[in-house]
Design a protein around this nucleic acid. Sequence first.
RNA 1: UGGGUUGUCGCCAAGCGGUAAGGCACAGGACUUUGACUCCUGCAUUCGCAAGUUCGAAUCUUGCCAGCCCAGCCA
Length: 567
Amino acid sequence: MPEEISETNENESGGSALNFLERIIEEDIRDNVYHRSVHTRFPPEPNGYLHIGSLYAININHGAAKRFGGVFNLRFDDTNPLKEDMEYVGAIIEDMKWAGYDPGENIFFGSDYFETIYELTINLIENGQAFVCDLSPDELRESRGTLTTPGVNSPYRNRSVEENLKLFEGMKNGLYNPGEKVLRAKIDMASANINMRDPTIYRVLNADHYRSGDKWRVYPMYDYAHPIQDAIEGITHSMCSFEFKDHRPLYEWVLNALSFAFPEPPKQREFGRMNITGAITGKRYLRQLVSQGYADGWDDPRLPTVKGLRRRGFTVESIHDFLGEIGVARDNSTVDISMLENSLRKDLKPKAKTVMAVLDPLPVEIINYPEGADEWVEVENNAENPELGIRKLPFSRNLLVEREDFMEVPEKGFRRLFPGNEVRLKGAYFIKCEEVLKDDNGAAVKLLCTYDPATKSGGSFTERKVKATLHWLDAARTLPARVNLYGRLLLNENITGEEPNWPRLVDPASLIVMENARMEESLSAALPEDKFQFIRHGYFVCDIHSKPEEKLVFNRIVALKDTKKKG
RNA sequence: UGGGUUGUCGCCAAGCGGUAAGGCACAGGACUUUGACUCCUGCAUUCGCAAGUUCGAAUCUUGCCAGCCCAGCCA
């Protein structure tokens, strides 16, 4: 028995208005169309890893089931043994669990229905609704016609039921080679919808299936298998993406032809695909990036895969928030990546520990601070959430500040460090820039500053104010660190030493943008130029699972689809 | 020259005959031990365009225009 999704856990799609798909379901419930509870499914082909677009599709189906107290299935749509692999089923289940869409016991495989589908197909043939066709792939393509001209009937279209039965059995028993014979639905070669022009529903494949092994030589096509799989599982609403809209008549034709077996057939309904600016979705391209080494793996933080997003520091909560925020599109949409980032920020702000880290260090020497001395200053881990406590940072004569926080000749409005100016070091003291040491090229290599002991953070000093506060590190006690979105590099490892596992890092100071020419070049080589154009900037992101010494500085792998066309 | 589908602010997106929600982004201002955060304020007299129906339309009708999808023995 499938488990029903509890209505009490989590809050995805809870409370908000129904989207247009959910409205359809609501009507069906009202009209008593189904004498069973709402039942949805997510049917990935195990040929790649899940990405943010998959999560969007999962959320729509899973969310609808939850909303109406229904059931949700994960079903591997594995009817093409040439492309599928067990590696992916494990990864998909793992990612779904992580993302909060645990299918529980409701995990199915389309390939488990091969036998049933085969038997139903015998009925189809007996009813004269399918025939074995000997046309070669090329001949078949030609006879199909074009978008504007009708196709012509196959010369094999009128074979007798007996002959079809015999030939189909022969196909099943491996008597024919791939390409020699296919089974086709007998519909209408003149249909304006090309999917209805006697579509192929079974093909011969001399390939072992990752689950059914060498049992089958004949495999059903997606268009034929999918409606049957849905029906077998008792799915009521089969929600898929837009490109299948034209396939709906065929989906319905199949279930109608098999109505003796499925009296209350599921409905296919479609939603627009979701794209994110600057992110490559589409398993085909992701696979290319991974297999050709442009990405370090499916979990490369630059990728919008679930594993990539996870390594990059995105939380489940932020992803759910994002998905709820963008809604369900009727047509393809491209959501600005800033919406995803906003959801992360929203989630992390109150619960993540904040740390200081210096990305591009500029040494500072406090010339009036005793040589060899040091002290520990206290900084709150999260300015707005005291529950996260405080940490102690070492402070001494030699420090590091952000290079961009200093200007020898301050431009108008600059209020950070410049000769003669005083600023506060977060959690520590006021310091004043007294002298700039430069290299032969005139670039600053070190700032000589003085500090005022009276201005120690937490004290009652009010005599003068500074216009800026800077983040800083003790020069001798820093470590390359993992950096998150909005984080910074060189993190001080000596944060009291209490946290073996690093918290997600959030430095509200700034969002860092950089260029990465090398990545741009490799992407250009990897992907077709006419379809993609590369943007120049990405964000620093972090890998909270990697080792500190890796010192990661990532750019997003980015591409904007079809930007040339749109100008 | 076919069929399907969509068109509400730069991006998502409510709205479903009663006189344009919200979020992101952006711009001003206040606040500030990071120029961040937070808080205020601004941001579609208009809903692809044009006619029509109506007291009244983004919502109904007609025509036009634009985008996206479809010719795998892929899913």
